[in-house]
């Protein structure tokens, strides 16, 4: 029995060893970016053999990105575009998902199928025709165009996800509200939406993060500096022959932080949502 216990203890140690090792592998690239961004001199950044810790941590790279470059403007643009995309797609998603989950009508299956289907085909595949359309409508280099495209991009996801949350809310609550004299829309926004708020918040955050991260449409359709979003700004840095890794990593960290903060709020729901989806199939 003693041998059994000993092997169990060894097993546990190995298990935690592997888990810690993996955690280090996950964290390391982020940490490395952070460390690089805090090094102030080129000599320090490009030293080989690598010097791991910055000698005198400084925010020089950050301030030069924000004030010499136009990064603060890009961040504002990204916030505007992603905020509109999140609110817009969730609002439309609520209405559409409500109809799909509460009404029975002809072609319902086809509509749902269509939403799932369009989710599978990324928008960048259609970049060339989109570019042509937008240029004919004189809508290039316009931040609202980008916002509109992102709303459009996130609608299928919002509908599909919110539909899942709607099926979780019993329709009897809503019927009770209607008996008390609520119209359908009022019942929806005053009764159902508050109950679903956590799910709606998670959907919003996901739509926000996806728009925040979107690259290809933004680089194709925007090339005026004042309308650039963060990925477009970073892309301009990466296209240069000589990448300045200090500033680049500072930019990357600033691009990361908002998504990571939002993500940590929504994560519980996302993990649950994903795993619920997995268990249900």
């Amino acid at each position: 029995m003693k041998g059994h216990q000993a092997s169990k203890a060894i097993g546990k140690t190995i298990k935690y060893l592997f888990l810690s090792l993996y955690l280090i592998i996950v964290i390391f690239p982020f940490l490395w970016m952070l460390l690089t961004s805090l090094k102030s001199s080129q000599g320090e950044i490009y030293a080989f053999p690598v010097r791991y810790l910055p000698q005198a941590p400084s925010f020089v790279n950050y301030s030069s990105m924000l004030w010499k470059g136009n990064f603060s403007r890009y961040m504002l643009n990204s916030f505007i575009v992603s905020g509109i995309a999140g609110v817009g797609s969730v609002f439309i998603g609520i209405l559409a998902a409500y109809v799909i989950s509460r009404y029975r009508f002809k072609g319902q299956g086809a509509i749902l199928f269509f939403f799932l289907f369009t989710q599978m085909i990324p928008m960048f595949i259609m970049l060339a025709p989109l570019y042509q359309m937008l240029s004919k409508m004189n809508m290039l280099n316009n931040i609202w165009t980008l916002a509109l495209l992102y709303v459009n991009m996130m609608i299928p996801f919002s509908v599909v996800t919110l539909r899942g949350f709607f099926s979780g809310v019993s329709s009897t609550i809503e019927e009770a509200a209607q008996i008390d004299g609520c119209g359908r829309l009022r019942a929806l926004f005053n009764v159902i939406v508050p109950i679903m708020l956590p799910g709606i918040a998670a959907t919003f955050i996901f739509a926000f993060i996806n728009s925040w991260n979107e690259l290809f449409m933004a680089i194709m359709f925007i090339d005026v500096d004042q309308f650039k979003t963060i990925p477009v700004g970073l892309n301009a840095l990466i296209l240069k022959y000589d990448i300045k890794w200090g500033e680049m990593s500072a930019g990357a960290i600033m691009a990361l932080v908002p998504t990571i903060i939002l993500f940590s709020f929504a994560q519980k729901y996302m993990v649950e949502g994903l795993s619920a989806g997995a268990v249900k199939g």
Partner: peptide, 9 residues
């Protein structure tokens, strides 16, 4: 966490 970060970054 990596899931929240874009492929580009």
């Amino acid at each position: 966490f990596p899931w929240a970060v874009s492929g580009f970054l």
